[in-house]
């Protein structure tokens, strides 16, 4: 058993500075996760070579893999640092910020583009108001379970990081938002806005930019069936395009919702 844990951390002082590496060693303890190891570094921010430095900066909140904060590249894999257990990792543990998002500092990145994408596809159910209107529609247990898979998406960004189509030259919004669009199109109330979501996904950065590499579904920490959603959205888009074509020709205003997956 090693008596130290070695962490090689990619650092960057601010968005406009160049990145550099620092290696830290902390005393071995069993059952640590990467966050606990980073906490130890923070308590004594001295590199392996004895150089006093600043504490590395990172995002974290729940540490139970439900908030999506602590996304990092750990030994090259996009994942949540809270569930990355030190005893299962090869050392030195190489920790880098996500590469597909602008670095704020060290391991902290700016993922606001994911929230912008949620705004673009209208990722919500319509609601008349918070006043009493009685219960919602009955939902079968089967539909609830299907919705629930996608409702666990924590906007962590692993699927974007792993996707070859997501890069600085591409407007592709990534898999997470396609999963959310699929979920809302399946909702009893949300389905009434399905065509608006499909309109948003037809354009640049939408469904057409997916290259079917299927990396998203492999890295998703919540094992969300993202590729199923992407395929379903694809079918909805085809159906919707055909409908739209005939609707436009006929000049009639009809309800144009997808088949609802």
């Amino acid at each position: 058993m090693p008596d130290t844990i070695s962490l090689k951390i990619k650092r960057q002082d601010s968005p406009d500075k160049a990145p550099y590496w620092e290696t830290f060693e902390i005393p071995y303890q069993p059952n640590l996760n990467v966050i606990s190891a980073l906490m130890e570094v923070r308590i004594n921010p001295v590199t392996r070579d004895g150089k006093k430095t600043t504490a590395p900066v990172w995002d974290a909140a729940c540490l139970e893999e439900v908030c999506g904060s602590c996304s990092m590249l750990i030994n090259g894999k996009p994942r949540q640092a809270c569930t990355a257990l030190v005893d299962q990792l090869e050392q030195p543990i190489v920790i880098e910020p996500f590469s597909k998002f602008p670095v704020v500092r060290d391991l902290m990145v700016d993922r606001s583009r994911m929230f912008e994408a949620l705004r673009r596809v209208k990722a919500w159910n319509p609601l008349d108001g918070t006043y009493a209107l009685g219960r919602g529609a009955l939902v079968s247990s089967e539909t609830q379970q299907e919705l629930y898979h996608f409702a666990r998406c924590m906007t962590c960004g692993c699927c974007l990081e792993a996707c070859p189509q997501v890069n600085e030259h591409s407007p592709f919004m990534g898999a997470a938002v396609l999963g959310q669009a699929y979920m809302f199109n399946l909702q009893p109330a949300g389905s009434s806005m399905a065509h608006e979501r499909l309109d948003a996904l037809m354009g640049p950065g939408g469904h057409g930019d997916c290259g079917n590499a299927q990396n998203c579904v492999r890295v998703c920490p919540k094992e969300i069936p993202l590729t199923d959603a992407i395929a379903a959205i694809g079918r909805q888009l085809t159906w919707y395009s055909v409908k739209k074509f005939f609707l436009d020709r006929g000049g009639k205003k009809k309800e144009a919702s997808g088949p609802g997956g």
Partner: peptide, 22 residues
């Protein structure tokens, strides 16, 4: 009870009974 109804209308995927109720 009305808060649960509201959350239900917002689309919270609450677990369901066989009949489809919460």
């Amino acid at each position: 009870p009305s808060i649960i109804d509201l959350l239900d209308r917002m689309g919270v995927p609450f677990n369901r009974t066989p009949e489809g109720h919460l």
